[in-house]
Design a protein around this nucleic acid. Structure first.
Lengths: 350, 350
DNA sequence: TTGAAAGCGCTAACAC
DNA sequence: GTGTTAGCGCTTTCAA
């Protein structure tokens, strides 16, 4: 690999001049400039970022620390972060905690196990001199890992940071659930069952609030017997449907598509016609949803927007172009979802 | 951020000694060693990889250049590459061409557009001094981008490289299709329709070969009228089913699950009972397959194995531990897939 | 066992 | 415009 110095020697100029040309620092005569450019082309010279980063103290590289890139929300978010960073000429590296892969659904409760994985990665990331970090969570909860003295700017993506200088970008759970529930009510449903995740889960809690708000605004009462707490799995959707069906409902709001799939399983088993005798709404708009029979009415996650927003927050911070508003209060950005109407919800026949 | 030099000053030793301790270079007295280790812990010192890489000329970092991480095969492969690299203490950075995102299905035919995206990324990757590269394709075809003088070792993942020193890791298309077809034939089916991708597509071509081999071994003749060339989309699955159904078939082998989904659409529309009146097999075992009604019999892709194999090939090469066999012939590793039997294929009722 | 010195490839400050 | 000098944080001879 040719180095800048070698180029300089060939051209009979100093390394500085070559550096200036490479980085477009203007003050070079057209003639030498052209000569240098030619040699660069001939030799196929490529600047060494490592050396550059060492000197410049800025690498124009940010790191995504993802809890698990195989989580269905991750790829689209990562992709949009990269897209945005490319526009602003930043490089992105991805680091993967593989949390779900390692421990399925339990890890986030065991602080020591969690940190045994996280800490070395963070250390690693920091050691590679990135300018900033986006932590990409697998599901929304409060994550407190960026202390106030964290050495580089950070953004919490798809989770809540609770730290004054680390903004969070999450989805608008409450409003979205409100919309779905309202849609169901407008279709004539009054007893609407809910299949959620665990009760302490933030997605579940917030969506339940939105659900309740819609009930309230329509003069309906919240009935705890209509809500089943599952674990986001297809199986728990099945169990949930079985349970709440006993309460005489006409619609099911499953808080994720997989559980909606489980509800379909049970309903099919009972010979109850979905989209006719009973309505079902999901959440997430995973690829599976469009293949359900009937196709599932659900809510799509604004993953691309979440990614872009997170990236923008970070890069603005790096370049100090952020609008003042932020300052020292905890910033949480909630990005709205959008309902996608398909075939699984229908007007209640009186 | 504390530096090695500062640690040295605090401990009243030279930078060399600290470096030796940090890297476990043995020849240090227990006493000073302990002192240094203590200070490192107190100060939270982290070695600067950038500086290290500059000096050491090896960064222990490999790059994945992915055509599109949002392609359904990518996340699992990336995840397994990372898992393997973690075991061998290599870092991984991911770079994303976003090819599908940019140009849907056409880019790989336009060399200039393709290179306008690829070249800067490769340049970038090289400039960041990675030790090696894994190119992760979105679908299998011949890709000729690593010349013989490519400066670092490379592996072609999910595509064919055709370059002597760049091994390729792909799936065993032909054998897998052979197995599916055999399964169908063993279930009594004699006229088996195929819905594939474009005819020039390698996946399609190879699987068709496997299909034909199974026919041959069972004394059946290949009939071109039974194969429809689609474009992997659900819609083309629908069109394909419509087309080949006219030929009086009792089973459909769709070369991807999405097209199987399209076939389901058409069959449902006609009121033909899948898994009873007609059998359908898919390919890929995407998450959607298990939600079909009836659940789809398909073939799952060995993504984790592909990733590990690619990573192993690269790291072995980096460390010169590879077995001799490779040398200078073109190496292609074909990883077998495995059928997953569900409900969409049944014995043909005579 | 420890340290001094040189240098990896590049950029920044300051002269000329 | 262009060159000189110094130094980013680390490792690696080689000598003590």
């Amino acid at each position: 690999m040719v180095t800048l110095k070698e180029i300089a020697e060939i051209c009979n100029v100093s390394a500085t001049t070559v550096s200036n040309v490479v980085n477009g620092k203007a003050k070079t005569s057209e003639e030498t400039k052209q000569r240098i450019l030619d040699v660069i082309k001939e030799t196929g010279y490529k600047p060494n970022y490592v050396a550059k980063g060492l000197r410049a103290r800025r690498t124009r590289t940010i790191a995504i620390v993802a809890e698990d890139i195989a989580q269905f929300t991750s790829p689209a978010i990562i992709e949009s972060i990269m897209e945005y960073c490319e526009e602003r000429r930043y490089r992105v590296t991805v680091h993967n905690l593989r949390l779900y892969d390692r421990w399925a659904d339990t890890w986030y409760k065991q602080d020591d196990a969690y940190h045994s994985v996280l800490d070395p990665v963070i250390k690693d990331v920091l050691a590679s001199q990135v300018d900033g970090i986006i932590y990409l969570a697998g599901h929304t909860r409060v994550i407190r890992i960026f202390e106030d003295n964290f050495p580089v700017p950070a953004v919490m993506c798809y989770a809540l940071s609770e730290s004054a200088n680390v903004p969070s970008v999450v989805i608008e759970d409450e409003l979205s659930a409100f919309e779905v529930t309202t849609h169901l009510i407008n279709s004539g449903h009054k007893r609407i069952g809910v299949i959620g995740g665990r009760s302490e889960n933030i997605h579940t809690a917030q969506r339940l609030l939105g659900y309740q708000k819609a009930l309230y605004e329509n003069g309906l009462l919240y009935d705890p017997k209509l809500v089943y707490y599952g674990d986001w799995s297809r199986e728990s959707g099945y169990d949930g449907a079985k349970e709440i069906l006993k309460e005489g409902i006409s619609a099911i709001f499953a808080l994720c598509d997989k559980m909606a799939g489980g509800a379909y399983d049970y309903l099919d088993e009972c010979g109850i016609k979905i989209g006719e005798e009973i309505s079902v709404a999901g959440f997430d708009d995973e690829s599976i949803a469009a293949y359900f029979r009937p196709q599932l009415t659900t809510t799509s996650l604004p993953l691309a927007k979440i990614g872009r927003k997170s990236a923008k927050l970070l890069l603005d911070r790096l370049e100090d172009t952020m609008e003042e508003e932020e300052s020292d209060q905890i910033r949480v950005y909630r990005i709205p979802c959008s309902m996608v109407i398909r075939k699984s919800v229908s007007k209640l026949k009186k």
